[in-house]
Design a protein around this nucleic acid. Sequence first.
DNA 1: CTGGCTTTGTGAACGCGTGCACGAGTGCCT
DNA 2: AGGCACTCGTGCACGCGTTCACAAAGCCAG
Lengths: 229, 229
Amino acid sequence: MAPERTRRRIPDATVSRLPVYLRLLGEQGDEGVDSISSERLAELAGVNAAKVRKDLSYLGSYGTRGVGYEVAYLVYQIRRELGLTHDWPVVIVGAGNLGQALAGYGGFGERGFPVAGIVDVDDNKVGTVMGGVRVRHIDDLPQIVQTKRVNIGVIATPGMAAQDAADRLVKAGVTSILNFAPVVLNVPHGIETRKVDLAVELQILSYHEQRRSGGVGGAVGSGPRSATA
Amino acid sequence: MAPERTRRRIPDATVSRLPVYLRLLGEQGDEGVDSISSERLAELAGVNAAKVRKDLSYLGSYGTRGVGYEVAYLVYQIRRELGLTHDWPVVIVGAGNLGQALAGYGGFGERGFPVAGIVDVDDNKVGTVMGGVRVRHIDDLPQIVQTKRVNIGVIATPGMAAQDAADRLVKAGVTSILNFAPVVLNVPHGIETRKVDLAVELQILSYHEQRRSGGVGGAVGSGPRSATA
DNA sequence: CTGGCTTTGTGAACGCGTGCACGAGTGCCT
DNA sequence: AGGCACTCGTGCACGCGTTCACAAAGCCAG
C-alpha cells in the first residue's frame, strides 16, 4: 500500500461522537440543508462548538472558513473514516428476549449492519425465525462467520454464557464484540470489545437520584415529589 | 449513620465502575469468599488495582491493610452509595421490540428496578401483557409515575417519538431518563440523562475494524474481511 | 513483643480531553 | 477594490482521571 504511515489516530472520545454527527448531518441533508456551521452542529449534538471543530479537524480540513461545512461532503468523510462505506454483517449470539429484539430492530440493517445470523445453544429455538433470520445452532457459528465474512459479533446471552460465547466468536474469527451481558469478558489481545450493561446504566441513574433525594441517609423511598414514606 | 457529610462527590468515572465492582463482589460472596484484595478485584473487573483502591476510597476507608476488603461490608457500602438500599421502579415508554425485551428481561426487577409500567401511543398495543406488565396508554403516564413513585423513565421508542416521550416523562415528574433512541434529548436542567445507542456502538467497532483492515486507503470497497487469520 | 510480610490509602506526576481565545481564510456588500 | 462580517482551525491552559510509588497500618509467627 501507499506510504500511508500511521494514519492519524483519532481520540476515542472523538470516535464516539462522530456517529452522532453523522446521524445529525444525515437528517439535515434530508431536510435540504447543504451547509452547516460548527455552532449549529454543536447545538444539535448538544456539545461545545469548539469540540465539534476539533473533532472534525481530525478528519482533515474539510470546512470552509466563513461558511461552514458542506453537509454531503462531511457525511462522506465521516462515513469513510468510520469504515461505513460498506456493510458490516453482524452475528448475534443468543436468541432470547434481547436477541429477538436486536434481530427485529430494523435499525441494524438500515445503518449498515445487516444481521448475518443468529445462533443459540437451545435446540428448541433453532429453526425459529426472528426478524427475518432463522436461528441456527451455535455450532454453526464458524461457518456463518466465514461464509458471511462477519467481523462483528453481538453477545445477547445470559451472563453465565457470555464468556463461552465470546470464546466461540473469537475462535470463529470475529475480531470485534458488542457485549450486552453483565460480564467482564476475557478476550485475546487485539479483539475490540464494547459493553452495554443496562443494570449499570440504571444504577448510575440510581446514584444520582439517591444523591438528589438528600444524600446517603436512611433508606427512604422519597422521590422528588412523593410523600415521605 | 451519623456522618451526613457523605456529600463527597464521587467522580463520574468511578460511579460507572462501582456497579461492576458490586456485581463481582456479589458473585464472590455467593462463592463463599468473605475477604478480597484490591488486586483480586481489579483482576476480576479488568482494571488497575490502584484504580480499584482509589475508587473504593471515595466511599470511605473500608479496607483493612494487610488483609483486604470484607466482601459483605463492601457490598453494603457500595449499595448504599449507589442508592440501592431500596427499589427504584421504572416506567418504560414504547412497547415495541425493545420495550418488550426490556420488560421481559428479568434482570430489571432482580436488580432493584421493577417495571412499574409500560406505556405506548398505539392503542393496539394497549392492554397486551409483556413480561407480566400490562401495556397502558401513554396518557396514563402521569398517573403511573405518581402512584408508583417512579423517578426513572426508560425511552424505548423510535427516534422520532423520543423527544415527545422525554417531554412527557419530565412533565409527569420523572427526574432520570435512560434513552435507547438514537436522538439527542433536550431536557430541562437537573434531569439526569443517559443514552444507549446500539448504532453508535457498532459504528465505533466499525471504525476499529476499518482501521485494522488497512486504514483509510483507497475508497475501494474490498471486503471487510481482509487478510487476517 | 518484635520483626517481617502483606495490602491499603493517597500524594504526586502524567496524559488525555475540553474549552477558550484568536489568527487565518472566505464570501458578501458597498 | 476594499472593508466587513463570519467561521474555521488550532495553540494553549486547565481540569479530570489514571497510574505509580511509598508510607502507614494491620496480621502473624516465633
